[in-house]
Every structure is written in structure tokens, then in C-alpha cells.
């Protein structure tokens, strides 16, 4: 899982996002991961369980004041064994590199 999360974060960087020091308190307290930023879009990788089943999540927000508190919204969830191409596509959408298709997911 850690490896997948690091892959996602490497993709953030590949598309021009930079790691921030936002939300340091909650990173320690709740184990939140680093928030990245690209053109006013704050984004974070994570893991969340839905009905007891773990998923890789992409969370984002476009307002600094929420990002400062670590209050990002889940915008995508991917299976933990998600192929790399799909991870990359999801990151491109979430960062706004590419517009979402008409219906997503």
C-alpha cells in the first residue's frame, strides 16, 4: 500500500505539484499524508475503508483555508491493486491536467 501511495505522490510531482507543509498537526496526529499543491489545487493521497474494504483515495480542495486544516474532499477511490496507468489517469483528472470525462467514475 505504501508503495502505491508513493507512486501516486510521484505522479503528483510529475504533473507539477509540489509538496507543502500544510496541516502538519494532523499529519502527526492522524497520520495524514503530505498535501501537494498545483495551481491552487491542493491534493493528497490516502487510504480509506468503505464497508470495511480498503481503497486508495485522492482527496482535494481548492481553498487554502481548508487545506491548512487538512480538510480535503475525497474525489476518487481506486482499488488497492489498481494498475499504474489507471492511477496516472486518475491523478491527471484530479489535478485538472485533463478534464474529467462526461460521467466519472
Amino acid at each position: 500500500m505504501e508503495e502505491k501511495l508513493q507512486k501516486i505522490e510521484a505522479l503528483f510531482v510529475k504533473y507539477g505539484a509540489v509538496p507543502t507543509s500544510l496541516d502538519e498537526a494532523n499529519r502527526t496526529r492522524f497520520g495524514d499524508r503530505v498535501i501537494f499543491e498545483r495551481s491552487g489545487c491542493y491534493i493528497r493521497a490516502g487510504v480509506a475503508a468503505f464497508d470495511g474494504q480498503p481503497f486508495l483515495t485522492l482527496s482535494s480542495i481548492d481553498q487554502l483555508k481548508f487545506a491548512e486544516l487538512g480538510m480535503l474532499e475525497d474525489v476518487d477511490a481506486l482499488p488497492v491493486d489498481c494498475p499504474d496507468e489507471r492511477l496516472e489517469q486518475a491523478v491527471r483528472y484530479a489535478l485538472g491536467v485533463e478534464p474529467y470525462p462526461e460521467v466519472y467514475p
Binding site: 482535494s60 480542495i61 481548492d62 480535503l72 474532499e73 475525497d74 474525489v75 466519472y104 467514475p105
Partner: peptide, 14 residues
């Protein structure tokens, strides 16, 4: 509710 949440939610309905 934030704009980010609402956009993501409604996207799931096209």
C-alpha cells in the same frame, strides 16, 4: 458543502 465535493458528486451522475 464545498464546491470540490459537489463537483465530484454530480460528476458521478454526468
Amino acid at each position: 458543502r464545498t464546491e470540490t465535493y459537489l463537483r465530484a458528486l454530480f460528476r458521478a451522475y454526468g
